[in-house]
């Protein structure tokens, strides 16, 4: 039986918040180094993904939760990627039908 009643740990919550704060400082600081594009986007998004992972797993406590809750979260991200991915299959590969139009 999956139980959602999992006691939170004060220490873990505080550490998570500190980690999130540090990552925010890093992501702002990294900007001044001027990493060439597209790596700057990759770095910024990677940091955001790590931060989101921390919030989901520790604040929202998904690591101790039912696997169906995890599954529904994963599915939402997956289908968002489908929306973006398949739309870009069009928007990135359009050829002007009438040249110069």
């Amino acid at each position: 039986m999956s139980s959602g009643h999992h006691a939170l740990s004060f220490k873990v919550l505080i550490s998570t918040a500190i980690a999130l704060a540090v990552l925010t400082v890093i992501t702002v600081a990294v900007r001044s180094i001027h990493i060439p594009s597209p790596f700057n986007i990759i770095v910024a998004i990677s940091i955001a993904v790590v931060k989101a992972y921390l919030v989901v797993m520790y604040f929202m406590n998904l690591r101790n939760d039912s696997r169906f809750n995890l599954l529904s979260f994963v599915f939402s991200v997956l289908f968002l990627l489908i929306l973006v991915g398949l739309t870009m299959l069009d928007t990135m590969f359009r050829v002007p039908i009438v040249p110069g139009f």
């Binding site: 925010t24 955001a48 604040f59």
Partner: peptide, 10 residues
């Protein structure tokens, strides 16, 4: 919070 975490860098 998570949505803002993405909005900020984007």
């Amino acid at each position: 919070d998570i949505i803002w975490i993405f909005l900020f860098p984007l």
